[in-house]
């Protein structure tokens, strides 16, 4: 075995006595195994556990309940097709989010908002800017819908869903620094949109 030159002997000693804990993925792997074997109950469990989260993400990414339902369905069918690829290296929730976010983002990269929708949203935002309660829910959702898909996903995962940057970085296959930077840009664009400025 090759030695790792960068590690000093003291670091090696510490690593030997305090190895990085290996997360227990047995529950995730067991659920996946049951789905692969065709157990409908297991798929029901997956739906129950992750359906609301994926629907919420799709709802906020799309701003439209019917589109969100279609996207949620597409994501779960995709998960069934890919389920054998899950190998337990990441948490099942992270893997599922990765599949879902990539599918949802690709939908919106393919189909940018129409001019009519965009103008309607901007009109709503201009009204919102004059209202005393700047961050009312509808204003927020309209502004979220105007963000570029990548920024939108990071903002929703961090500020709305409460995921950590480390998780977001794994889901989107980006660095933690990029996740933080995108979150800041997303918030700045949200602020501009809520003030009636086109970013």
């Amino acid at each position: 075995m090759h030695a790792i030159p960068a590690l000093s002997s003291s670091v090696s000693l510490v690593m030997e006595h305090f190895p990085r804990p290996v997360p227990d993925r047995s529950e995730d792997l067991n659920l996946v195994d049951r789905i692969v074997r065709g157990e409908e109950d297991a798929f029901g469990e997956l739906l129950e556990r992750y359906g609301p989260r994926i629907f919420n993400l799709a709802r906020r990414m799309s701003g439209n309940p019917a589109t969100a339902e279609d996207l949620t369905q597409e994501v779960f069918l995709l998960l069934l097709r890919k389920i054998r690829q899950y190998d337990g290296r990441a948490a099942l929730s992270t893997w599922i989010y990765r599949v879902a976010v990539n599918r949802i983002i690709s939908e919106f990269r393919r189909q940018p908002p129409t001019t009519e929708t965009a103008e309607g949203e901007m009109a709503a935002l201009r009204v919102a800017s004059a209202a005393p309660a700047l961050h009312r829910r509808l204003d927020l959702e309209a502004a979220i819908g105007r963000l570029p898909p990548g920024y939108r996903a990071v903002l929703l995962m961090h500020d709305v869903e409460g995921l950590r940057h480390q998780e977001i970085a794994e889901i989107l296959d980006i660095s933690v620094g990029t996740s933080k930077s995108q979150l800041h840009h997303a918030r700045m664009q949200m602020r501009d949109l809520l003030q009636g400025e086109t970013p």
Binding site: F43, L47, G51, P52, F55, N56, R60, T72, Q73, D159
Partner: peptide, 27 residues
């Protein structure tokens, strides 16, 4: 800061009751 707090308070959308059955049927 206010924006971040407002986003954290956004209510979750209700998962449509019929959606799970629709997904199962399609699968």
């Amino acid at each position: 800061g206010a924006l971040r707090d407002a986003l954290a308070r956004l209510p979750a959308a209700e998962f449509p009751p019929a959606l799970a059955d629709r997904i199962r049927q399609r699968a």
